[in-house]
Design a binder for these strands. Sequence first.
DNA 1: CGAAGGGTTGATCAATTTCAATCGCGGTGG
DNA 2: CCACCGCGATTGAAATTGATCAACCCTTCG
Lengths: 240, 240
Amino acid sequence: MANRFVQKLSGLVDLTARDIVALEAATARPRNYAARKDLIREGDETGAMLVVLEGWLCRYKILPNGTRQIMAFLMPGDACDLHIKLLAEMDHSIQAVAPARVATVSRTEMQTMMQDHPNIARGMYTAQLVDEGIMRAWIVSMGRRSSVERVAHLICELYLRARTIGLTDDGDFALPLSQIVLADALGMTPVHINRVLKELRLAGAMALSRGSVTIIDAGKLVAIAGFDENYLHRRLRQMT
Amino acid sequence: MANRFVQKLSGLVDLTARDIVALEAATARPRNYAARKDLIREGDETGAMLVVLEGWLCRYKILPNGTRQIMAFLMPGDACDLHIKLLAEMDHSIQAVAPARVATVSRTEMQTMMQDHPNIARGMYTAQLVDEGIMRAWIVSMGRRSSVERVAHLICELYLRARTIGLTDDGDFALPLSQIVLADALGMTPVHINRVLKELRLAGAMALSRGSVTIIDAGKLVAIAGFDENYLHRRLRQMT
DNA sequence: CGAAGGGTTGATCAATTTCAATCGCGGTGG
DNA sequence: CCACCGCGATTGAAATTGATCAACCCTTCG
């Protein structure tokens, strides 16, 4: 099975065979985590950078009133928190939302690799910029989109991200997220998520069941979401 | 008047006299922008990094339905989009919300400075991590806080950020944001912002008028917001 | 002096949450 | 093997939050 980290970076920059060897070596000893297992908790001292090879993680925070907000999903190929060692402690937690295989790369290891492999450095910085764009898109969704638009937008985003790392099968892809997790990510109640999903299904746009999404009518879904993929910056090869 | 960029970075890392000279040289030729002036528009080719010296900017995006969402405020000392040249085009716009004085630093200039001044490099990466934490906090606010909590939380954040660069005067600070701008930042309507501000004033927590905020009872405001300053990472000196 | 842009308030409306109940499924212990 | 349990999914009805619509006021600025 392909190394998703290599696959993702090679979608952002050109990698040489040497670069690929280095990336594979750095992620050669992954660990497995069960769903719902916390990898890092808010308040923990900062540690190594994580690289997701299989499965899904999320960043989240629990509020004083007990509600939870998910701020990001990390799927295979995604890395989190380059340079994180510069901060003293984590301001949020990271959890596996589905069974995951995750490699850890220490800051020094990463720094050495980035010094020796400028393509990798460029790729990492680019990935970080894209992740920031994704966060901004989430802010926009939460602030100014209705619940239906919000759900549709998130599915569009996740579908495209999954597709660039080869995890989609035509209009289908595995989405190992319960409606409760979706609710925590979109700032809604599980009850309302359920109604919105029904609406999208009846509209013939998409259907979610047993851990996988079927895009029934992509055009319709994109129209409902008001989705513009520019923030995912998928056309990078031609830049300097 | 102190160079706010220097002031901000020296709150994150120790700077030598040489570092400070380099930073001052890099920001020596700022330009002035009137309120509401766009510095960068969505779709523009990416350019230099901006450094705010005086005044306030915001990042924002206009949706198809004409509404606007602000995703970040940039105050004096804040820099935006280190490495931005790695992306082909901007996925959002940046505008002055108040009259601003802004320096631009090209990517090569910045790279040279970071190579020659490791402290500056550490400071820039740290600042970027903090900015990401701020974005995540905004996602949490939009997703899981009520309108009163949201307003209170934003004011707490802006107050602390302003204080670390020396822009506060006891419980007072200049907040050059109209209620309309606040509404665009918090995903609410101006009408509702107005009612929430009234509520906070009547509760004796804070008051906003003519471009400045007075924190009447900080404890009360923090309690209403459920504010935890950890995400601003203000105690960094002791790290490696 | 007049116009424009914010700020303020009231009344009504719509979206989403809350509360409550039921259903279905996979896993577990007997 | 089967009854039971717990969690997620689903649906209905009531309650609440925040949006919308519509004035009016005040200050600033040309």
